[in-house]
Design a binder for these strands. Structure first.
Length: 272
DNA sequence: ATGTCTTTTTCAAAAAGA
C-alpha cells in the first residue's frame, strides 16, 4: 500500500520583537529562546552595549546573521535573520541629524523592509523628555508615511513605549501621569494605524490584553499587572500576508528575564 | 512616595534611566 503523503506545510515567516534589556547579560536567555522558537527575523531593543560588545559570534553560531547599532549603557537596536545576512538600509530615523540616541535600525530581509525601533520612554511627564518622545514619534510617522507611499512591504517592530488604549494596561490608576499612557503619545500611535499600518497583535486579538511588559517592581509579573508596549506594525502592502500573532509570555517568567516578553507574528512570505 | 534592577561616576554611595 502506498504511503499517504502529507501535503507540504505552507511556508510561513516568523518575525519577533524583543526588548532584551541588556544583550550581554541576557545572552543565554536569548540563545535559548532562539533555539526554542526559531524565529526567522528578530528585532532587538535596549542592547545597552556598544557596537564592539555585540555578541555577533554567539549569534552567528546560533544560525543568525545580524546588523546592529549599539550604544554604551542605554538604547541600542539590532536585527537578526536566520540563515541570512540582513541588508542594512539605515541606522537612524531620518529627521534629526543631532539625535545621538541609537533607537532605530532598518534592513531588508526576505523581501521585507524590517525596522527595529525603540521609542523614548518619555518620563517624567510633562517635561522635556516627554516633548522629545513626541518629537521622535513625529519623525517615525513621517518615515512610515514615506514607506507606505512607496508601497514597500514593511514591518515597523519594536518597543513603542506606548499603550495604544486602556485595553493595553491592567486596571490601575498608578500609571495615571506616566508617559506610556498619555493621550498625546496614544494619538501618534493611532495616526499610524489610521494611515493604514496594521497593529498585527491587536488586529488578530481584538479582545485580549496581550501584555508584553511587566515592571520588575511590586510583583507585577506575578499579578499579571502588565502593559502592551511592543508592537509589530505592517505596511498596507504587507498587511494581507499576516497569518498569526502572539506573545511569548513564558520568557518573562524565566530566571534573569528581561522585563519585556517577545511579541511575534507569522506571515505568508512575500513573492520576490 | 514607594516599589526593582542595573549602570555610572568615581572608588562609597547616590543618581539616573527604565
Amino acid at each position: 500500500m502506498p504511503v499517504k503523503r502529507r501535503p507540504a506545510e505552507p511556508p510561513s515567516l516568523r518575525i519577533a520583537t524583543f526588548n532584551i534589556n541588556g544583550i550581554v547579560r541576557r545572552l543565554p536567555r536569548l540563545l535559548d529562546w532562539l533555539r526554542d522558537t526559531s524565529p526567522d527575523v528578530v528585532c532587538l531593543q535596549e542592547l545597552k552595549a556598544p557596537d564592539e560588545c555585540f555578541p555577533a559570534k554567539a549569534i552567528a553560531d546560533a544560525g543568525y546573521g545580524a546588523v546592529w547599532h549599539g550604544q554604551k549603557s542605554w538604547n541600542g537596536v539590532a536585527i537578526l535573520a536566520k540563515g541570512a545576512e540582513p541588508i542594512l538600509t539605515r541606522k537612524d530615523l531620518p529627521g534629526d541629524p543631532d539625535d545621538q540616541e541609537n533607537r532605530y535600525i532598518e534592513a531588508a530581509v526576505e523581501g521585507i523592509l524590517v525596522a527595529s525601533l525603540y521609542a523614548p520612554n518619555g518620563n517624567p511627564q510633562p517635561g522635556l523628555k516627554f516633548e522629545r518622545k513626541l518629537a521622535w514619534m513625529n519623525r517615525l510617522l513621517l518615515h512610515a508615511a514615506d514607506l507606505a507611499a512607496q508601497s514597500v512591504p514593511a514591518v515597523l517592530a519594536g518597543d513603542y513605549n506606548v499603550t495604544p488604549t486602556d485595553l493595553d494596561i491592567y486596571a490601575t490608576r498608578s500609571w495615571g501621569k506616566d508617559a506610556l499612557i498619555q493621550p498625546e503619545a496614544r494619538a501618534r500611535f493611532a495616526r499610524l494605524v489610521e494611515s493604514g499600518w496594521i497593529d498585527a497583535i491587536r488586529a488578530l486579538h481584538p479582545d485580549r490584553p496581550m501584555y508584553t511588559f511587566w515592571d520588575y517592581m511590586r510583583r507585577r509579573w506575578e499579578r499579571d499587572a502588565g502593559l502592551r508596549l511592543d508592537h509589530l506594525l505592517l505596511s498596507p502592502a504587507l498587511a494581507p500576508n499576516l497569518l498569526e500573532a502572539g506573545v511569548d509570555r513564558d520568557q518573562r517568567g524565566c530566571e534573569g528575564a528581561s522585563d519585556h516578553a517577545p511579541a511575534w507574528i507569522t506571515l505568508r512570505p512575500v513573492r520576490r
